[in-house]
């Protein structure tokens, strides 16, 4: 049987290429959400309303998939997940139809929402540690900074931010990214010790305390933020 996909999520040619997440973050309570395919009591520690660490791993937060709610995406849509070619980036003015991606999405049985207020995770600094090697010394010289340090490591400040990354069948898809002190993206491909430390510290400082199982309210996204001509 063919699965039906909620067409309201599909990017439209009259949508903006990319929403400005800083403008959206300036709304009262903008919210992003990730879904867990595990039951609620295996997703959250119920007593303390905190996310279990086996639901989002620290190394996953570089490029962590999230969805902006308050526009056309509603909680009932969290069961739908793009896969394969549908996960590729959508660029205006491309017209997409679900017919083309009929085999590129799935519907999960369980979709427990994990909420983050955008303000809690966007443009948030976090510390990370880098061994006092020649590369780190070069960076310090180039940036003309004097970072705090331990005996053998410098303490740098990275930045966590959220970027709008619509895919072929979900305009409301956003991702979490980490930048290093030089404003360069830290990617999962970077296997260095300091990059791993950055992911762990960002997880500790930003993700673990801010994941919520419920939110009281969230902002409606004004049409001006996503329609090309409001």
């Amino acid at each position: 049987m063919r699965l039906k996909y909620p067409c309201c999520l599909i990017p439209k040619s009259y949508y903006k290429d990319c929403m400005d997440m800083n403008k959206i973050a300036a709304l009262k309570r903008p919210c992003v959400v990730r879904s867990s395919s595990k039951p609620f009591n295996e997703t959250f520690n119920i007593e303390t309303d905190t996310l279990r660490e086996d639901i989002i791993f620290p190394k996953e937060i570089m490029g962590l998939s999230l969805n902006l709610i308050g526009g056309k995406l509603h909680l009932r849509h969290l069961k739908y997940r793009a896969k394969g070619s549908a996960m590729k980036e959508w660029r205006k003015p491309e017209k997409t139809t679900i017919k083309k991606y009929q085999n590129s999405f799935e519907k999960t049985k369980i979709a427990v929402p994990i909420y983050f207020y955008l303000k809690d995770i966007n443009n948030k600094p976090f510390p990370y540690y880098r061994t006092k090697d020649s590369e780190a010394q070069k960076l310090i010289k180039a940036l003309n900074i004097n970072p705090p340090a331990t005996d053998d490591k410098f303490i740098f400040e990275g930045q966590c931010f959220v970027k709008h990354t619509p895919n072929k069948i979900n305009y409301w898809h956003v991702e979490m990214f980490l930048d290093d002190i030089n404003k360069a993206e830290i990617t999962p491909k970077n296997k260095s010790v300091w990059a791993r430390s950055a992911a762990t510290e960002a997880y500790k400082h930003i993700v673990s305390g801010n994941a919520r199982s419920v939110v009281e309210k969230y902002s409606i996204i004004p049409k001006a933020e996503y329609l090309e001509v409001a």
């Binding site: 520690n45 119920i46 007593e47 303390t48 905190t50 279990r52 660490e53 086996d54 791993f57």
Partner: peptide
């Protein structure tokens, strides 16, 4: 309140 979890 307290929660306990083993992690990966």
């Amino acid at each position: 309140k307290i929660s306990v979890e083993l992690t990966p």
